[in-house]
Structure formats: C-alpha cells, structure tokens
Design a protein around this nucleic acid. Structure first.
Lengths: 193, 193
DNA sequence: TACGTTAGTTAGTGATAACTAACATTTTAT
DNA sequence: ATAAAATGTTAGTTATCACTAACTAACGTA
C-alpha cells in the first residue's frame, strides 16, 4: 500500500504544479488534493524539491527518434512528414507537464529548461535535415536548405504544441489532424520537385 | 524627480518579473534593484499587484493590423508574407515582457492570458485568411483552405517567437531573417499556382 | 526663512510556508 | 492476535513576505 500513497501524492503534485507552477503550490495544497496529511507527504519526499524531482522524473520521456527514423519511414514524403509530425507531437504531449512546470518556474530550473529544448529538438532537427537530404538525393524534392527547412517544419509544430499547452480553450484545440495535414500539404508542395 | 523614481521602479520590476515571474519576485527585490527603499515602492504603488498592473500597462501594445493590411501590402505574395511575418514578430517582441510574465503566472492572470492569445491573434488570422482569399481571386495562388493556411503560417511564427523568448541561448537566436525567409519561401511555392 | 514634497529608516504586524518532533491511531502482514 | 509499518494529529520553529506606522533627512520653491 506504500506505493498507493506515494502515487496519490505524485498525481496531486503533478496536477497542481502543471497548473500553477512549483512555487505557487504549497505542500499543504498537495496533501489536501492527495487526501493525506501534510506529514505523510514529508515522510515520502523529504523536501518539497524532492516532490518536484519525482514528478519530473516520472513524466520525463526520452524520445527514440533515431529508432523511429530508421524503422517507420516509407519513403513517401507526405506520408513520412505526417508520421514525423505526429511522433513529435505525441512526444511533446507526454512531456507536457514538464514543459508547463518549467515554463512557470524558468528561473528556478534553468538546466531543465535547456534539457527540454536543445538536446532533444536539435537531435530531431538533424534527423529531419538528413531525411530531406536523402530525399534530395532520391530526386524526390528540390535542393533546399535542409537544415533551415527542418527548423521551419519543427518550429511550426512546436508553435502548435505551445498554443494548445498554454491555452486550454484555444481555437486550435482538437485541430491536431487538421493542422498537421495542412502543414504537411503546404510543405510537400513547397519542396517537391 | 517624481517620474524618475517611478520609472526606475517600473524598470526594475519589469526586468525582475520578466525573468522570474510575479510571485517569485518580492517588493524588496524590486526596491533593491531600483536603488530605492521598500517604502518608496509602496508610496508609488499601493500594492504589489499595483506594480504588476503598471508594468503590464506600460508594455501592452495594441496592434493595428487592420491599418497595416490596408496600407502596406504590395500584392506580391512573397513580399507581403514577409512583411506580415515581420510585423507580427515585431508586435510579439514588444509584448514579450507581458508574455513571459503571464506564462510564469498563468493561474494568477488567466484573463490576461486570454487577452494575449485570442483577441489579437484571431483578428490577425482573419486578416491573413482574407488576404489569401483575395490572392486566390486574383489568380495568384491556388484554391487553398485559407483559414487553415493562415493558422499554419501564424503558428509557425508563434513557435519561432516562443523559442526565442523562452530560451536565451537558443539556436534560433539571431536567425529571424533566415527563418522568415525560409518559411515564406516554402509557403509561397507551396501555395502558388 | 518656512513649508511642502519626496525619500530613507526602523520597527512591527499578521499571514503563510517549509519543515521538525512527539505521540496517537489505523492498517497490514504474519 | 499481535507486532510492525504507515498514517494522522498537534504543536512549534524559523523564515519570508506584503504591508503599515511613525519619525527623520534632504530638497526645491515661495
């Protein structure tokens, strides 16, 4: 039953911190939402920072983009871009709690902020650029600036993700498929031969 | 001399809150950075919330997109999209402090969060969509889903803005012209006849 | 010179938050 | 049924924070 309590606390903490950020949530808040006493929280996690780390650890997903790129691509540009887009968005969705917590407490968690951004995204950028390069060599698309176009493509998806993450009742809500479809369509006819 | 002090306080508050958010900045912090005593801060702004409101008021820019659309467009699609992109990014840059403060204190400032997002962006979306519609009628571009493409275009720019705003040492830093150029290029050849 | 404005200083209040300690109660496993 | 583990309760410590009050010092202006 130990695990049950710990999970309830983590779930409550994740929910609260995702909405309000780290410093705007008290341990008492977490205890109340979790339905336990404040002491119990401290017994499971020594400090408030300990709770945060557990939350981050629980919701931190490492992407396996390399594996994805080597296995799931068909060669058809439109289809592949759609797959890449959906994979990226699914990955961001999983990391949404972390993203929302860190954006609300940027100054307190600078290293994490960088972790989210650069490592993963830059790796993906290179993979997409390499994919473009491959398709150029296959004669499927024009001789574009592969790196720049990879950035444009991924940044668009990032914009979509952020819009949905920051604004609950947003006009983009439930528009994922539509957005991806139009983005890919424009992109494909924009870079095709 | 009155204005000088008030300005110093506002400047300090803006800087601190942009970096750390509202609730992670104390009035004492602001006073120290402004080089005045804490009491002086309270004499100029009755409450801490009063400081925030003054900061928001000072850095809140209302866009005149309608005017821009009726005056600054040439008819050349590539050129116009570039102009639109730069105007939008310049507008977001001006509102950057507000954006950063509100994202760090979402739960405390929900109305402001919505103000930033919907009103302005949705208006711009309609203007861009109308522009696409006009160019379709002119025979310059294909019969696209104007609204969807307007969203894709603006969301890409939004993604660029957010990346730069949230991450100081980002790979996109100082890449504005390049980004806009590649985005517009892909877009233009993607929707042109 | 006298006065008003502006700012600094010091001390304090009340609230909240993170965290500890000691002890009581419930739950679970054997 | 009983011991051990997990949780609750209560009280308290320390620190910070928003904000107030009272008094003082510097300044420009009439």
């Amino acid at each position: 039953m130990k695990k049950d309590t710990k999970d309830k606390i983590l779930t409550a903490a994740t929910s609260l911190m995702t909405e309000r950020g780290y410093s705007n949530v008290s341990v008492k808040d977490i205890a109340i939402v979790a339905g336990v006493s404040e002491m119990t929280v401290f017994r499971h996690f020594e400090t408030k920072m300990g709770i945060l780390h557990a939350v981050l650890h629980k919701h931190s997903y490492i992407p396996y983009f390399e594996q994805f790129f080597s296995q799931n691509l068909s060669g058809d540009v439109a289809n592949d871009l759609k797959q890449i887009a959906n994979t990226y968005l699914a990955f961001m969705e999983k990391n949404k709690p972390i993203f929302l917590i860190t954006t609300q407490d940027r100054s307190m968690l600078p290293e994490l902020m960088n972790t989210i951004s650069n490592n993963q995204t830059q790796q993906l950028q290179q993979l997409v650029a390499a994919y473009f390069q491959y398709q150029i060599e296959q004669g499927k698309i024009r001789e574009i600036d592969t790196k720049a176009q990879a950035i444009v493509f991924l940044t668009s998806l990032f914009g979509f993700f952020v819009s949905n993450a920051l604004w609950e009742h947003h006009f983009l809500k439930d528009q994922k498929d539509s957005f991806v479809q139009h983005l890919v369509a424009t992109f494909v006819s924009g870079i095709s031969i």
